[in-house]
Computed example of a mutant assay.
Amino acid sequence: MILNSKNLHAGVEKLKEEHVGLVVVINKYDGIDLPKSACTVLVIDGLPDVRRKIDKIEESALQGSELVLNNKIQKIEQGMGRGIRSKDDYCV
């Protein structure tokens, strides 16, 4: 199943109800809650692109700075948090 901004909500609800198999979430994982067996293996292939012009300018101007690095680390942590939400969840 491939999820994007158009079918994300319905796809996440299906994941919570039944085993789906391989699911690809395209460029969107903020706010997705995948508890228990809904996500046991998570692969993050790159980071979401910066969309807003002001963010692109900031990233370009501050390239290599600690601020840009911290923003990237935060995005990775958010992605990792999709599979592990509580002490009862497990994910690799």
Rank of each mutant, 00 (worst) to 15 (best):
L69N: 12
V68G: 05
I73R: 08
D49N: 11
K75T: 14
D55M: 05
G31Y: 02
K36T: 13
R52W: 09
K36W: 15
I54K: 07
L47H: 06
E58S: 06
N71A: 12
K28Y: 07
K36E: 15
D55W: 03
G79Y: 02
P48E: 04
Y29F: 05
A38N: 00
I76H: 08
N70L: 03
S60L: 15
N70M: 05
D55V: 03
E66V: 04
Q63M: 11
D30I: 06
I54N: 12
E77T: 11
R51D: 09
N71D: 13
D55P: 03
G64K: 05
I76P: 06
V25R: 01
S37Y: 14
I76V: 13
N71E: 11
G31Q: 03
S60E: 13
K53S: 14
K56N: 14
E58F: 12
V43N: 08
L67T: 14
Q74R: 13
S65V: 00
L47T: 06
S60M: 15
D49R: 08
I26L: 13
P35V: 02
R52I: 11
I73Q: 10
L47D: 09
V68M: 07
G46F: 03
N70R: 07
S65E: 03
D49A: 08
M80C: 14
E58T: 02
L67G: 09
K72P: 01
G79Q: 06
K36R: 13
I57V: 15
A61I: 10
D45Q: 11
K72W: 06
T40Q: 09
K36M: 12
G64P: 03
A61R: 04
N27S: 11
I26T: 10
T40D: 10
N70T: 05
I32A: 00
L42N: 02
Q78C: 07
K36G: 12
M80K: 14
S60H: 14
L42T: 03
D30A: 10
I54S: 15
N27G: 08
M80W: 09
V68S: 00
C39A: 04
I76T: 13
G79F: 04
I32D: 00
G46Q: 04
S65I: 00
R51K: 15
A38K: 00
R52L: 14
Q74G: 10
L69A: 13
L42M: 06
P48Q: 00
N27D: 15
E58Q: 05
L34Q: 01
M80V: 12
I54H: 10
L34H: 00
E77R: 13
K72N: 12
V41C: 11
Q63F: 12
S65H: 06
I26D: 12
I73V: 12
E59R: 01
N27C: 05
I73H: 08
L47F: 07
R51P: 08
K53N: 13
K36S: 15
V41D: 10
A38F: 02
V50Q: 06
D33R: 02
E59A: 08
V50K: 01
G64N: 05
G64F: 02
L62Q: 05
L62P: 02
K56F: 11
V50H: 03
V68H: 02
T40R: 08
I73Y: 07
E59I: 02
L62G: 01
P48N: 04
L69K: 14
